[in-house]
């Protein structure tokens, strides 16, 4: 009897990447199942595409943050970086700049923000949490200054990017998929990714092992800044205009939540892009489900919080069970 049970377990064993997140995947699946039963439109192709398009920006930021957090870094300013990029690119487009020039400026601007964060963290040894919270505050103000507190229309220059599709797949989703694949490949197959994990696991040992920790850390912050630039352009293409209150801390918290729920350790050394993707999807599906089921506004935060809590606990239990 036992041997049958064991052999069954062996046959049904999930691939490691999925097996590690079986708890989170189960929660996501259950929620999808529940929503499919309660709303006839939830599981339709247009709604699935709708949800995926809505989470694309979050996914790009979360993929980059996963690699940064693997190295023990943290960036609480990503949402604010996005806010500034959205504002500046909209201003550039409004003043007649070519869309390519404006977009390159957006990505470079993100790189500069990342460079500042990286240098403060490595040169002055300030904790990433404090550094990026401070730069987030500066950038929130900078976004308002760039917009002069008023909405700035991006015109139609980015509309195709925000609404266009190829073979029924939105461009935004394709970009997100490429970034996710890139982040996963970096962590798994490149020396850069393995070094990041080594730094997150033990920075001193990594340094003694020959890894240029400060240079590596700065590079990670710059890469995250560039992804924030890309995410800003994607968000602007969806919205069509920059306006006060876009992105900022709320987006940032959502991104951090997606990464942490996915199983990436806050202290570094352990990261998983597959888990992050599940975390992003969970948040996107819950936001969509809340609207489809028309949950009363007073209960929305409660619903989201409970789902996050359950997902985090289930994922953690699963993780603990392996040790």
């Amino acid at each position: 009897m036992n041997s049958i049970g064991l052999s069954r377990t062996t046959t049904l064993r999930l691939p490691p990447a999925l097996g590690r997140h079986a708890g989170l995947a189960a929660v996501l699946l259950l929620i999808c199942l529940y929503l499919s039963l309660r709303s006839e439109v939830f599981a339709t192709t247009p709604n699935v595409v709708n949800v995926l398009r809505q989470v694309a920006v979050m996914a790009v930021l979360a993929a980059g943050l996963t690699v940064l957090m693997a190295a023990g870094g943290l960036d609480f300013s990503l949402g604010s970086q996005v806010a500034v990029v959205v504002a500046v690119v909209a201003r550039l487009l409004e003043s007649g700049a070519h869309v390519v020039v404006a977009s390159i400026c957006g990505v470079l601007l993100g790189a500069v923000f990342g460079l500042v964060n990286g240098l403060v963290v490595t040169v002055f040894n300030v904790a990433p949490f404090v550094t990026t919270l401070a730069t987030a505050t500066v950038l929130d103000g900078a976004a308002l200054i760039a917009m002069q507190g008023q909405s700035v229309s991006a015109g139609g220059a980015l509309t195709e990017l925000g609404t266009g599709e190829v073979l029924g797949i939105p461009y935004l989703l394709l970009i997100a998929a490429v970034v996710i694949a890139g982040a996963a490949a970096t962590l798994r197959w490149t020396r850069f990714g393995r070094d990041a994990l080594a730094i997150g696991g033990n920075a001193v040992a990594a340094r003694l092992g020959g890894i240029a920790v400060p240079r590596h850390t700065v590079a990670l912050y710059v890469a995250n800044g560039m992804l924030a630039g890309l995410a800003g352009i994607m968000l602007l293409s969806r919205l069509g205009a920059a306006s006060p209150g876009t992105a900022g801390l709320h987006l940032e918290l959502t991104v951090v939540a997606a990464v942490v729920i996915g199983g990436t350790a806050l202290h570094g050394g352990n990261a998983t892009v597959a888990g992050t993707v599940l975390g992003v999807l969970l948040l996107g599906v819950v936001a969509n489900g809340i609207n489809l089921l028309q949950i009363d506004s007073f209960y929305q935060s409660v619903s989201v919080g409970v789902v996050l809590l359950v997902a985090a606990v289930v994922n953690q239990l699963r993780h603990r069970g392996r040790h």
């Binding site: 439109v41 709604n47 709708n50 909405s151 968000l235 306006s243 209150g245 609207n291 489809l292 028309q294």
Partner: peptide
Amino acid sequence: QRAKAQEVAENLLQS
């Protein structure tokens, strides 16, 4: 918020 309202409107179009 503009971005949130857009997301809600997209979901409205589905439901």
